[in-house]
Design a protein around this nucleic acid. Structure first.
Lengths: 223, 223
DNA sequence: AAACATCAAATTGTCGACAATTACCGCTAT
DNA sequence: ATAGCGGTAATTGTCGACAATTTGATGTTT
């Protein structure tokens, strides 16, 4: 576990990655049932590897499994989003604090470089902040915490579910332009080795992000 | 998932619970290799259910699996303990805060009742605080948070690994007598619906607990 | 018409066998 | 003696078939 490069080794690995991708991107619909026989023909593997892939998806909280009944893709709800982002706020805030304490100077320099690249992207593409860039930013801070349990829980725990919410409920809009500025301030705090501030800024950043998605999830409440 | 009563349904359930118990209690040694064929004869089930049980143990961070190589029980180390308890402090602190906010009055009353029972136990058995009682206390607060992701991460995430550290590295000693007082103060804060204080007290409580275990884990550093 | 029992079809759970990969041991060469 | 190299034994990964359970429809009863 904790395969950061996500290099598939076995057939179960490949199927797991592919199925996860399909679910996160909405190719396999949220809330739909996952039939083992159906998937085994679709992905051309035996039911055993499908079962293993589904079990791994269950550990990511992306599918829910009931004994003798089967597995369903989770459905996205406002309550689920709140619960998820509460946990994320706590864990990633902690990651930022630990990162300020444990990242090497070289790693922090790399983080600054990444930020400069994004700055150019924002200028060139008109203040559009790439999803991949944002994920990369958060990944580095998570890894920078150097806490293996924390890393495992986030990277192969809840992070793909977070991505699922973001991909399927839109992360475009006016919000994305401000995210970059927030990232800058977080890195600044980490540079100063100010863990407390880094944690607070990260928590705010995630809170804003939650509010942004929440608006799209329940647009009827805006009126 | 999230079977709180832990009622085994399938053979894989039963094997998972049994194997987890054996590992947590040290019957299966920390750091040892888990041979699939060996376990399948030992527990009288096919390799398929053993594989599923091992996969579930991997999601609890109790075993680590490498492709084409096999699974090993994690080994207990001071670094692992620190990482684990950092995460636990953050998550259970959050649970206490949310519990103060979300538990019903009836649930809080039950929690007080539980505390009174423990108080009697302490008097009768000479200030010995039962492991089971402590676990029960923490369980109730975790469930009281009403955050399903948080509950899942703690209950079938890291909690059994926490128990493994505590069981195998001793939770007896002078520390246990003070734990009950700390529990009382946490419940008091929850009664007052003071989430901030409940979180802070819970974090302290877990920090003390970590220090206590850490002393036993590295006794050579005491001199 | 609604609720319940019964049975058939479909789905999940479990098993043993085979394939692929890794680990171990003895051998050779330097 | 040690490092590198087969080759064999053991272990994990994958598969298809069978058993157990659930689901849904059908028919019966109140």
């Amino acid at each position: 576990m904790l395969n950061l490069t996500e290099q598939p080794i076995t057939a179960a690995d490949k199927t797991f990655f592919q199925l996860r991708k399909d679910i996160v991107e909405g190719v396999v619909l949220a809330g739909s049932k996952l039939s083992e026989t159906e998937l085994s023909t679709k992905y051309s593997v035996s039911r055993a590897v499908i079962r293993e892939a589904i079990n791994r998806l269950a550990t990511c909280h992306i599918v829910e499994r009931k004994a003798n009944v089967g597995a369903r893709v989770v459905s996205l709800s406002p309550e689920g989003l709140v619960d998820l982002y509460q946990v994320r706020e706590s864990l990633e805030g902690m990651a930022a604090r630990l990162a300020a304490q444990n990242m090497t100077d070289a790693e922090i320099a790399d983080l600054n470089t990444l930020l400069n690249v994004h700055s150019q992207d924002v200028k060139n593409h008109g203040s559009y902040y790439q999803e991949a860039g944002d994920v990369d930013f958060h990944y580095r801070i998570i890894l920078g915490s150097k806490n293996n349990h924390l890393i495992a829980m986030l990277v192969n725990g809840i992070y793909h579910l977070v991505r699922m919410y973001r991909v399927q409920l839109g992360m475009s809009g006016p919000r994305v332009s401000t995210a970059f500025e927030e990232h800058k301030h977080i890195v600044q705090a980490i540079c100063n080795r100010d863990g407390e501030l880094a944690e607070m800024l990260m928590r705010r950043h995630i809170l804003y992000s939650k509010n942004n998605i929440q608006r799209k999830l329940a647009p009827q409440l805006e009126a």
